[in-house]
Design a protein around this nucleic acid. Structure first.
Lengths: 335, 335
DNA sequence: GCAATGTTGTCCCACTTTTGTCCAGACAAA
DNA sequence: TTTGTCTGGACAAAAGTGGGACAACATTGC
């Protein structure tokens, strides 16, 4: 899939001005220059008039260094590290960090073998088997393991998404009991819910309200989105499932959110959906885009078009729209 | 166990600054230095500008010493110990602790302290304020902070329980919006859900199925119980809310659970409750006790009595019953 | 029971190193 | 013109270091 490549190999083309980099990383412009001056943390390309031009690669580096610093690393130590080394350090630190990690259990030597494309299907199958045998530890282990192997957005798209579909399908076909589905869902609710706390927030991130409208009780899709956008420098205001339109609008207003995202899954033809969407769109500031996703979004195409809502086709599409919105927004802010 | 071997080959390369060590161990920077000054607990290498540089080995030592201290050991005694000796001491202590656990709490003087009651009230108030202002970071910080201060069972009973009631009440009175309640609930769902993974499981724990019956959509009570029992050496099989009686019974059978616990909150007078409870009791092996708790349990007193269900009055009551059951079971098992 | 003594977490000081912010003057972009 | 970026340097806040003081508490000896 194209998605895989675009996400995993980071673009090194220089194109971002320093202000945008500052906004995305949460660092100040001065600081970025100071780091460059003192430790050559990043050495951006220059325009023909000597303006710095940063690549996505640079931005990723800076973000990682910022997190490493937050974890107690010294700039001197992390500055010369490669992106991979930084990733390792950061993930190691955040695994150990937080007084949460009471005891051992860590130091796992297992992921030496790289991931192949068929692996994800295997991985999903293994999880389904763990669910069927009600082996919670194994299930949890598989979830954690898969997550370490790849970036969160890829993981959500290639593992968690398919897993959810398989669980639904298997339950419908009677291959899994409702009890199995319940257990798996409850487990995933905790797991995905915790994902967004892997990121460090600066407080300057734009906010996005994420929920499902009245009648939509399945929250895992919305929760995945909350985890996803937190990777890209948004702060999700997550409201859980089944939130009335008025409340969503009120929440967006109070929190000063820059976007709203709804997830529709089941029931796909709930008669309340048109009412709620219309109501929400009218109560919401016109400048705030309203994203509608989930498997049931396809059932409401004309409605979505009529109301002028955004309906990205994949998690990746949503990501891109939000990235654009975020960067555009920052320009306005500073102007 | 596998963990031991992997840990025993700990890197002794000095590379971590003191701040990071503080983060990882939960000790303060001052304290780490004081320990070094007084007892040479660790003797870190130095950078060329005399900054301390700790190795993974040092960190592991400090972490173990911290646990040993927490268990009541004196610093003087543990300071000169080798890593292996420390491990032995710590694991011995925690085993002893676990055995004593149940009574130990009652004797702690801090609970009878009158300050305590206002303390937790303050803490709950602070959380409510964070919810009202939609300050997710603050809310999360308060939750984590409170948890550090006291044992999990106490925390659940004195902070989380009251907090849930206050949120419900405030929403009913209009002091909080539904959106606030949703946000708080979603957040708590993740937080409480993660609590049970703080424990390390050996695989030999007796299992207990935890859920809510059909019609009961609020899961936080059940989730609290899952976290609670995992502290006491049970392995919760958590099914989320709204599980049909047949499925609960099937799950108990497949997983070989030794007990089942249901949480009833809202609606208190749902007509499905008697049907479901009766059905579940009849399908479940008579040797498996069925616990029924939650605020709505009081509405079904005669039913509970008639079916011979257990209905502990508090989390603590449930704990005690389960402890007895577990110990009785263990005796049988070994006899 | 009480005083003396030991233990231990926290804080303060004076000093050094590291790191974040600010400024001035030149130039580029809008 | 106004705003933003660039360079180089200055400055100050933050964090680390060694040394020591001190209060809270536990233990010991009488």
């Amino acid at each position: 899939m194209a998605t895989l490549e675009t996400i995993s190999s980071i673009d090194t083309a220089p194109r971002h001005p320093i202000r945008l980099v500052a906004n995305r990383t949460g660092l100040t412009v001065d600081l970025i220059r100071a780091w460059e001056k003192r430790y050559h943390v990043v050495e951006p390309a220059r325009s023909d008039t000597k303006r710095r031009l940063y690549s996505d690669y640079d931005i990723e580096r800076l973000r990682l260094i910022r997190i490493a610093k937050h974890n107690g690393r010294r700039l001197v130590d992390v500055a010369p590290m490669s992106l991979e080394a930084l990733r390792d350090v950061v993930s190691e630190d955040s695994r150990f960090d937080a007084a949460q990690n009471n005891q051992a259990e860590v130091y796992r030597p297992s992921w030496s073998n790289p991931l192949e494309s068929t692996d994800t299907q295997d991985s999903v199958d293994a999880m389904l088997f763990a669910i069927q045998t009600m082996d919670q530890h194994r299930f949890d282990h598989l979830l954690q393991e898969g997550l370490v192997k790849q970036a969160l957005p890829v993981y959500l798209e290639t593992v968690i998404g398919p897993l959810l579909r398989e669980i639904g399908e298997s339950t419908r076909l009677g291959k899994l009991r409702i009890a199995h589905e319940h257990m798996a869902t409850a487990h995933l609710r905790t797991f995905i819910g915790a994902l967004r706390f892997r990121e460090t927030f600066t407080g300057s991130e734009p906010k996005i309200v994420i929920t499902t409208p009245t009648g939509q009780l399945h929250e895992l899709g919305a929760l995945m989105i909350a985890a996803l956008v937190s990777v890209d420098g948004w702060l999700p205001v997550y409201l859980g499932p089944n939130t009335p339109a008025d409340e969503i609008a009120a929440c967006a207003m109070q929190s000063g959110a820059r976007a709203v995202s709804l997830s529709l899954t089941y029931p796909a033809d709930d008669p309340r959906i048109p009412t709620e969407l219309t109501r929400l769109r009218s109560q919401l500031d016109q400048k705030i885009p309203l994203f509608v996703g989930g498997s049931a979004a396809a059932h409401h195409q004309e409605l979505i078009a009529r109301l002028g809502l955004q309906s990205p086709l994949s998690l990746n599409g949503l990501r891109q729209s939000l990235n654009e919105l975020r960067d555009r927004g920052f320009r306005l802010q500073s102007a």
